[in-house]
Amino acid sequence: MTTMTGSRPQLSPAARIARMHRQGKLTALLLFLPPALVLFTLFVIWPIFNAANLSFFKWSGYGAIDNFVGTQNYQRLANHSVFHQSLWNSVKLILASLFIQIPLALTLALLIYKKTSINTAFRLIFFAPYILAEIASGVIWSFIFDGDFGVSGQIATALGIEPFYILADRQFAFLAIITVVVWKYFGYHMMIFIAALQAVPDDLIEAAEIDGAGRWQKVFYVKLPLIMHAIKLSAFFAIVGALQVFDIIIPLTNGGPSNSTHSIVSYLYTYGLAQLNVGYGAAVGVVLFILCMVTAFSYRRLAMGKGGAL
């Protein structure tokens, strides 16, 4: 894709504009670029700079923003044990997404990617959690985990054992959240894989069969290499998605017990917005933004090859 533009002779900016005018592109540019540029600046660029600026102030959300505190918000952040825990939780979510969610999605996609009516039914079932709103999933699962009236409580009663309150337990509460996150999003990745698998040419698989490839050989030497681009893309979504988990945590644990289950975003919400430390929240937002950007760019560089091509 990039070779075409690369081979063009260099033109001066004025000559370029003149050429665009001849080709009728200039009118289109003047007509369509400003609205997009204005919206993008207003809703993306400006808030980013605004938040970065705000992170050097102490501001409760009321009154003028005039209490400049330098890097105090960042120092607090660096020393706050709950923030460390939130970072670690986000790392755990990333690992779970990469090493549990994606393999699960891939396995299921391989099982049901062929177009049959039973497969369609399964696809629908597996995709259903993704359609549900995050907040609704959180509420539903909080009922499931409820040891008094919920499903887990009923199972415990039926088995005649003491009910177990997983969301009240520091050690296991985050495991419950990981379970829900995997449950919620594996269907999405599965769909990406199914689309990619359906695009694998049948003749290649046939050729492999004629060459005597077994079932596993077909998977590992034909199908997986051919959908590697989809796997890389999926992994990218999984990482960025894991950094942004919020709506599921709030109804499940609200960050508790003892602030042990916050993600970066729920930490931002709790300590920044809910407690009216807007400047502090902005500092968390800046850190999250940098993390996302570093992840995105380094992932493109490392996994997606030159120029971000898949």
């Binding site: 409820d146 008094d148 003491e162 009910p163 309150y165 969301l167 009240a168 508790g256 017990p257």
Partner: peptide, 15 residues
């Protein structure tokens, strides 16, 4: 009560 850290105030009032 067991599981009190996963009990909201309204639920506790009900219990």
């Amino acid at each position: 009560q067991p599981g009190y850290m996963d009990t909201t105030q309204p639920k506790a009032a009900g219990l």
